[in-house]
């Protein structure tokens, strides 16, 4: 039983990690209509900036804001210099341009930091593990990821639903020209919004640094799973991204955790069962996506209606 609780926690934690990535992506797409493939690069920038500042100062508390600021700045300059020219174009042009940005950022990172992966220490106050139930200790850092993810979800909800900025954002998504006619600087609004989306990706990068490897191309590894989350949740919907991320996180983890044991009991050959289990669990989330698309083509919680 502790094992199952642990695996469920693992799933939830992976889900929150995915949510941080997916929220920015879906925010930018839902409101500005831009497919930003370079979201993974912003995640990488957040992680690298954190690693660099942590290595210089030795303090994670200084490094984390630096990571967020770097990602937000990179995101806003990306919007100002490149993406702004693409709002009127179709999605294929946006995909092409932001794919180019991925190559650009990967090469830039290689030039600045080299090809060797960087080391980020777990901040001392988040190191170690705590008992959850009898016979189960869980790493504090992973609990911190859950807490940060939850706080981000609440903050985003308040921002979009309860503030003036959120109101403008929602209005801008519905009718861009009308908002502009009322005297709102929609271009500035979009730049800020892009910065917020970038900061979310940066936050994911900051949190991922101490448990993953900070290296060139780390963004592309998570990008596909992030898109799966966005599609399952409903493109453009933050609530959808939240639900989608948790569903994907839990399903993926539980399949990896439970399937091998289950198949080993059903099949005679152990190593064949292992191979089949790993194949099936790798397909799991994609099959889930296909099923969701069959039943609800707009995702679980679509953005508009």
């Amino acid at each position: 039983m502790p094992l199952l609780i642990e695996q469920a926690l693992n799933g939830v934690q992976l889900g929150f990690m995915l949510f941080l990535l997916a929220a920015g992506l879906t925010l930018i797409f839902g409101i500005m209509g831009v497919i930003n493939l370079a979201q993974g690069s912003l995640y990488m920038i957040g992680a690298y900036a954190t690693a660099a500042v942590a290595a210089k100062t030795g303090s994670f508390l200084l490094a984390a804001p630096a990571g967020l600021a770097a990602a937000a700045l990179a995101g806003m300059s990306m919007e100002y210099l490149v993406v702004r020219r693409l709002y009127a174009r179709d999605h294929l042009d946006q995909v092409l341009a932001t794919f180019g940005l991925i190559l650009f950022f990967n090469q830039l990172t290689t030039i600045l930091f080299g090809r060797q992966p960087l080391f980020v220490e777990i901040p001392p106050f988040l190191n170690g593990s705590v008992p959850i139930v009898e016979g189960l200790r869980y790493p504090v850092y992973r609990l911190a990821i859950i807490a940060v993810g939850l706080a981000t979800a609440i903050a985003l909800y308040v921002l979009i639903a309860r503030t003036r900025l959120g109101m403008l954002i929602r209005a801008g998504a519905t009718n861009r020209d009308m908002v502009r006619a009322l005297g709102v600087d929609i271009r500035l609004l979009y730049t800020v919004l892009f910065g917020v989306g970038a900061m979310l990706a940066g936050l994911a990068g900051v949190m991922a640094g101490p448990i993953l490897s900070v290296q060139v191309g780390m963004g592309e590894q998570v990008l596909i799973l992030t898109f799966v989350v966005v599609v399952i949740g409903g493109v453009g919907s933050i609530r959808g991204a939240f639900v989608g991320a948790l569903v994907v996180g839990v399903v993926d983890t539980l399949l990896r955790a439970v399937l091998p044991g289950l198949l080993r009991q059903l099949m005679s050959s152990g190593s064949e069962a292992d191979a089949l289990a790993s194949g099936l669990s790798a397909m799991g989330v994609y099959m889930l996506m296909a099923i969701v698309l069959l039943i609800r083509p707009k995702g679980l919680l679509p953005a508009h209606g």
Partner: peptide, 8 residues
Amino acid sequence: TDFAAEMA
């Protein structure tokens, strides 16, 4: 990227 399930 996440190996928590394997660790358990």
